[in-house]
């Protein structure tokens, strides 16, 4: 084999993608990283110097601490809620008789295809000062004062759970499909109660699905833009909306680039370390 000339075909077949990606992904990403190493002056713009002052500013400033803290707190909370409601829902879906199973699978997954803007708009209509929440509150006799979840952490959490929970459901659903239903029967005949079967047999087998769903939900929440921008607004800034403002309002591109780089690095670190964890923990147990 070693004497044979290297087959060029696979390189030719992947070349269009690779060249396109180097020029239009590699170069812009590199430029963003380099940009983050310049300083910025509000009168003269981007400086030609090299500095890590942007990173120091982002990592040292309590203002950014608050934003990063809020973002990852939000991501954690949304992930936990998605686990708490998405896992049982996937279980219910898997045990529904057809045709209900197909119908509700469509209902639960279908929203993933609908623009995030539209889905968030729905919650904005609920949350707004003249929204349904206010109507319900006044109907229940809580007075005419508007009840609003707009520009609140709670509002963002609810809307993001709605946007992202289908990813948890589908991930757990896929794991559930792989379970041998006889393994649950086997545990039952060995004397386990239904609750024990759920806890000791079913749940451990869908753990990989729960973990991969969690990582998807966490990563997408941490970098979410549309929902925090519409529901959270300027009052509840997260990393993505803060970077957006640096770029398009303050025009401090180098600082915005530094925020983007940090977000990217955190994102990749989380995904990669998750994959390592799964490999170590589950390699012997599951395919």
């Amino acid at each position: 084999m070693s004497a044979k000339a290297l087959d060029k075909t696979p390189f030719l077949m992947t070349a269009p993608g690779v060249i396109f990606f180097i020029m239009l992904l590699g170069v812009p990403m590199l430029m963003t990283f380099l940009l983050s190493l310049h300083s910025y002056d509000f009168t003269t713009g981007i400086q030609p110097d090299w500095t890590i002052s942007n990173y120091i500013e982002v990592l040292g400033d309590p203002y950014f601490h608050k934003i990063f803290g809020r973002t990852f707190g939000l991501a954690l909370l949304v992930t936990v809620i998605c686990v708490l409601i998405g896992v049982p829902e996937a279980y219910v879906l898997a045990h529904l008789p057809n045709p209900w199973r197909s119908v509700f699978l469509l209902v639960v997954l279908g929203p993933l295809l609908i623009s995030v803007v539209v889905r968030t708009l729905g919650w904005a209509l609920f949350f707004g000062g003249k929204g349904v929440l206010t109507m319900i509150a006044s109907g229940l006799g809580f007075g005419e004062e508007p009840v609003s979840l707009m520009f609140t952490f709670t509002g963002m959490t609810i809307a993001l759970v709605h946007v992202l929970v289908p990813f948890m459901v589908i991930s757990v659903w896929a794991s559930l499909q792989k379970i041998d239903p006889q393994s649950e029967d086997a545990a039952l005949t060995l004397g386990a109660s239904k609750l024990t079967v759920l806890y000791r047999i079913t749940l451990p087998q869908v753990m990989p699905g729960i973990l991969s769903g969690s990582i998807i939900v966490f990563a997408l929440t941490a970098s979410a833009f549309a929902t925090p921008a519409i529901i959270g607004g300027r009052r509840m800034k997260v990393v993505a909306t803060a970077a957006y403002d640096e770029y398009l309002s303050t025009l401090n591109w180098p600082l915005g680039a530094a925020i983007a780089v940090i977000l990217l690095v955190v994102n990749i670190v989380i995904i990669v370390s998750y994959n390592k964890l799964v490999e170590r923990r589950f390699a012997k147990v599951f395919e």
Partner: peptide, 29 residues
């Protein structure tokens, strides 16, 4: 072929990059 996994990972990499990061990168580029 040599580099097969690297190429695959490279072509799939945008999945790991937040859209916001792609957005600012393209804006500047």
């Amino acid at each position: 072929f040599p580099g097969r996994e690297v190429i695959a990972a490279f072509l799939l990499s945008p999945l790991m990059i937040p859209h916001l990061v792609l957005g600012v990168a393209f804006l500047q580029f």
